[in-house]
Amino acid sequence: MQMRVTVNGRVYESDVEPRTLLVYYLREHLRLTGAHVGCDTTTCGACTVLLNGKAVKSCTVLAVQANGQEILTVEGLERDGELHPLQKAFWEEHALQCGYCTPGMIMTACELLERNPFPTEEEVRKGISGNVCRCTGYVNIVKAIQSAGRQMAEQNKVPNDQSEVVPSGN
């Protein structure tokens, strides 16, 4: 099936099998391997990306369902060589160990801070409960998200979208 999707500000046109899950489309067609697969049951959230600004588990969306939509992945967070405040905060607060959950966790946090720039610990914990981390025990992830929220409020950055059409990887 033909589809056209905007990922990280770039438009891709692809021909995919309808059963292709969005996560495999991103990983194998576009070679954006930040979203990971950690379970088969929509539990772990390692594959989380933003679909039209909303966090979704990309293992539980068909690629063809993203036709005509906009996707943001962890690879699209850095702007002009500058890390996103969440990326910085995860680094500074030691909010990752093996790194496998990190891209999904950051994307869920991205939407959370959009809705609520100053979440309490309880609100962060509620917000990220769909993203499993097996390494950190979550304490530093909570800290990082709160810290990023404060930084973002200070910066109040407006992302600049520069769209261009490119053919897809496959």
Partner: peptide, 12 residues
């Protein structure tokens, strides 16, 4: 609604 699964699942 707030008890159903988690944020990404509720978004969808």
């Amino acid at each position: 609604a707030e008890w159903i699964a988690d944020v990404p699942v509720r978004n969808r």
